[in-house]
Simulated scan of single mutants.
Amino acid sequence: MEDQIKNSFNLLSEKLLGWFNAFVNNLPNLFIAIIVLVIFYYLSNYAAKLVKRLISKRIHQDSLVNIISKITTILVLAAGLFLALGVLNLSRTLETLIGAAGVSGLVIGLALQGTLSNTFAGIVLSFRKSIELGHWVETNGFSGEVIEISLKNFVVKEADNNMVMIPNKSILENPVKNYSLTSKMRVSFNCGVGYESDLEFVEKLTKETIAKAFPNIENTEQVEFYYQEFGSSSIDFLCRFWIEGDKAIYKLRAINTAIIEIKKAFDKNAINIPFPIRTLQFDNDLSLNNDVKPSE
Rank of each mutant, 00 (worst) to 15 (best):
R278T: 07
T206D: 04
G105I: 06
V65A: 05
N174H: 14
I249S: 08
Y42V: 09
I262S: 01
N272I: 10
S130I: 10
F23D: 12
E208H: 13
V107G: 02
V187M: 02
L125Y: 03
I271A: 05
V65M: 04
V24H: 10
N45H: 13
R253M: 04
S234Q: 09
N289H: 12
I235G: 01
E132K: 15
E261P: 05
N161I: 07
M185W: 00
L97P: 01
N89R: 09
F214N: 08
G99V: 02
E148Q: 13
Q228G: 06
N89A: 12
Y41A: 12
L54C: 08
R92E: 08
A84T: 05
L12K: 07
I68M: 06
G141L: 06
G192Q: 02
V65G: 01
M163S: 09
V76Q: 02
E224Q: 07
L97I: 12
V24R: 13
D160W: 03
S117N: 13
K57Y: 15
N26L: 14
K268W: 02
L90W: 05
P28C: 12
E218D: 13
L94W: 04
E221C: 05
N161W: 08
S188P: 04
H60L: 12
L17I: 13
E218F: 08
N45S: 14
G109P: 02
I255W: 00
N190P: 04
